[in-house]
Design a binder for these strands. Structure first.
Lengths: 341, 341
DNA sequence: ATGAAAGCGCTAACAT
DNA sequence: ATGTTAGCGCTTTCAT
C-alpha cells in the first residue's frame, strides 16, 4: 500500500514532453543533447514538485548495474568485521554504492549459496572474506568474470584481487618479542578450519620464530578451536589447555573472539595475566585497550583494508579487462600490559 | 564482462516452449496451471543444465518487491548494533530476505537521505533505530505507507511499529540497586542528542529513583557527551568530570561505547573500580564480561529485539491494512564485580 | 530540439 | 495444456 511514487512518465506527461527528454535532463545530458535551457528548467522544477525519485531497480535492470556491492564475512557481529563493514560502507557510499552483507559462519557451503544470492540480486561485485578450502570455486568466479576482492584471506596460486596483511611477519615478530622477553614455552591458540590462509600463516610465523631459536614446540602447545565451539561459547578445551600446560609462560592467540574465550577462562582459573602468563593477540579492538591488564596486540590497518578493498573493487567494475591487484599490508605491534613480565 | 547468465527465454527457446510455461513451472505453479508432468520435468532439467538463476532485479521490477530490507542504525560497528544486525540477518534470511545496512552517525539529515536511498532502491521495508528529533518526518513515512519498524528508540504519540525495552524501569532498578548498596552520590553519564527516547527514559529512571529517596542530583553529576566526541575519542570532558566530582561513589553509564571511554579514562586517572567508584552500564556485550573488574550491566534481550523486529516488519509487508504493533521488552540486571563495594 | 520505440528479464491476465 | 502479450520504469538508438 505504498503511496504511488511519481515516475518518469508522470513528469513527462504533466509537461507534455517525452520520457526521453526528461531522462536526458535529469541525467545531466540536457546540454549534450541540446535541450533548451527553459525546457531543462521546467523539467527540473516539475521533478522537484512531484518529488520524483528514480526507481533504481528499473534503472538497474536496464543498465545491468545496481550500484550495490555485497560484503561476505564469517560473522558481521565480530568486532573486526563490524569495523571493516563500517569502513566499507563509508567508502562505498562516497562513490554512490550501497552494501548488502551476510555472514557465512565459516561454513563453506553457506558461503557458496550466499554468494549466489548476491549474484542473483545482481550486486555489481563483492568483498569476500572467504572460508573456502577450495580455490576451484573461487576460480569459477573469476572465469565467470564476477568482480570481487578477497579480504583477510587469499588463496595461494589463485590470481585475483585481494587485500590482506602480512600475517607471517606479524606472528614472527610477535613471537620474537615474547622470546626476547625471556619466554621459552610459548603456546599458540588458533581457530579451525585451519586451511584459512591468515590462520595458516600466523601459525607459520610462530613456528618460524620458535624454530629459529631451536625451541621445541610440543604439539599440545598448539590448540585449535572449532569456530562453532567459540560461537556456542563452549570453552571446555581452553580450560583443559591451561590446566594441562602449566609450564607455558606466554601464549599467542590468533583471533579476537578466541581471546575473549581465553580471558574468560583464565579469570575462572584464577590465572593472572601477565604475572602467570603473558598474552598477545590479533586485532586492536576497543576491548583490549580497557581490560586489566590491557592486551598487547597485532593491529591490523582496518581502515586501509576497507579503503583498498572498495577502491580495487570499484576500479575493477569500471575496467573492461581489469588487472588484478594484490595488497599486502603491514601490521603494527602494540605493546601493552599483558606482556609485561 | 560478466559471463552471460542464462535467462528464462534461454530455457524456453531451447525447449521450444514459452517463457510463461517456464516461469510457471519454476515458480511451482506447474500443477496449478495444469502443465503436464513430463513438460515440467523437462523444464526443470533444462533449467539445471543451463544453470538458470532468476534475475531478482527483473523479478523485483515486475513484482514491485525486492525481498530486501533496510537496516538503519547509528553505527554498524557499535557491538550492540552489530549483534542486532547479525540476528536480523539470521531471521530475515530464514524468510528469504536480504539486508542492506547503513549508519546514520546520529545525524538526522543523514538519516533522512539514507532512508530515501533505501526507498529508491525499493527495499520492501526497513528496521530503523532513528536519531530523529522530528516525529513529523516519521509520520510522513507512515502516510506514504512505507513499512518500517523502529527499534531501540520510538516516538511518544506516534502510532507505528516499534520494539524497544523498558528503559525507565531499567535505570530505575539499577539506580535503586546502587542506592541499596549505600551509594548516595550517584553520577550519570549519557550521550547527546538527548531527545532520543531511550536516553531520555534512562535518565528519567535514574532521576525517578533518586528523587524517591529525596536525594539531590547536582547538575554536575550528569554528563552529556556528544556522539561525535565519542567517535573521535575525545574524552577530555570525561576526565574533567571525574576530577571535579570526587564525591561520587557510583556512576551509571547509558551506553556501551561511553563506558569504554569511561574505563579508559579511569585507568588513566588511576581511579579504581569498584574500590573508588562503582560502575554500571547498558548492554551485555563480551567486553564487560572479561574486564577486571567485570562490569555490571543492564542486559537487553538482543535476540528478542531482532526477532520481533523482523517478524513484525515482514508481517506488515503481507497485510493490506496492517495493525501497528508495539513491543516493550524487559531488561535484565546482571550484577558483576564493578558494583561490589 | 525533441520523440518513438525497443528492450533489460520477469510475471500474469487473457487468450487459444 | 500451452502461448501471446502487455507492462513494471528506465535508458538509449535512431528518427524527425
Amino acid at each position: 500500500m505504498i503511496k504511488k511514487e511519481s515516475s518518469l512518465s508522470d513528469v513527462a506527461r504533466q509537461l507534455g514532453v517525452s520520457k526521453t527528454l526528461v531522462s536526458f535532463v535529469l541525467n545531466n545530458k540536457g546540454d549534450e543533447k541540446g535541450i533548451s535551457k527553459e525546457t531543462q528548467k521546467k523539467v527540473r522544477e516539475k521533478a522537484i514538485e512531484l518529488n520524483y525519485q528514480p526507481n533504481q531497480i528499473a534503472r538497474g535492470l536496464r543498465l545491468g548495474k545496481t550500484k550495490t556491492i555485497g560484503l561476505l564475512v564469517a560473522d558481521i557481529s565480530n568486532p573486526f568485521y563490524a569495523r571493516i563493514a563500517r569502513i566499507i560502507e563509508f567508502y562505498a557510499e562516497q562513490r554512490g554504492y550501497k552494501v548488502m552483507f551476510c555472514s557465512s559462519d565459516e561454513d563453506e557451503n553457506r558461503e557458496k549459496v550466499l554468494l549466489q544470492v548476491f549474484r542473483d540480486r545482481q550486486v555489481d561485485g563483492a568483498i569476500i572474506s572467504s572460508t573456502s578450502d577450495n580455490p576451484e570455486y573461487i576460480k569459477s568466479l573469476i572465469r565467470d568474470g564476477f568482480p570481487f576482492v578477497l579480504i583477510d584471506r587469499y588463496f595461494e596460486g589463485v590470481d585475483c584481487n585481494y587485500v590482506v596483511v602480512d600475517n607471517y611477519q606479524a606472528t614472527y615478530t610477535s613471537t620474537n618479542f615474547l622470546l626476547n622477553k625471556g619466554n621459552k614455552n610459548i603456546g599458540f591458540i588458533t581457530l579451525s578450519p585451519s586451511h584459512i590462509s591468515s590462520l595458516h600463516e600466523r601459525k607459520a610465523g610462530y613456528l618460524g620464530a620458535m624454530n629459529e631459536r631451536k625451541l621445541k614446540v610440543r604439539p599440545e602447545y598448539i590448540l585449535e578451536l572449532d569456530f562453532s565451539d567459540v560461537k556456542k561459547r563452549n570453552y571446555q578445551s581452553v580450560k583443559n589447555y591451561f590446566i594441562n600446560n602449566k609450564e607455558l609462560t606466554a601464549v599467542f592467540i590468533t583471533n579476537n573472539n578466541l581471546t575473549v574465550a581465553v580471558l574468560k577462562t583464565l579469570k575462572e582459573l584464577n590465572i593472572n595475566v601477565p604475572k602467570d602468563i603473558a598474552l598477545m593477540t590479533f586485532d586492536d579492538i576497543d576491548i583490549f585497550r580497557i581490560t586489566t591488564p590491557s592486551i598487547s596486540v597485532v593491529a591490523q590497518p582496518v581502515d586501509e583494508i576497507g579503503k583498498h578493498a572498495v577502491s580495487i573493487l570499484l576500479k575493477s567494475l569500471e575496467e573492461v579487462k581489469p588487472q588484478f591487484v594484490n595488497k599486502i599490508l603491514q601490521t603494527k605491534l602494540i605493546i601493552r600490559e599483558s606482556t609485561n613480565r
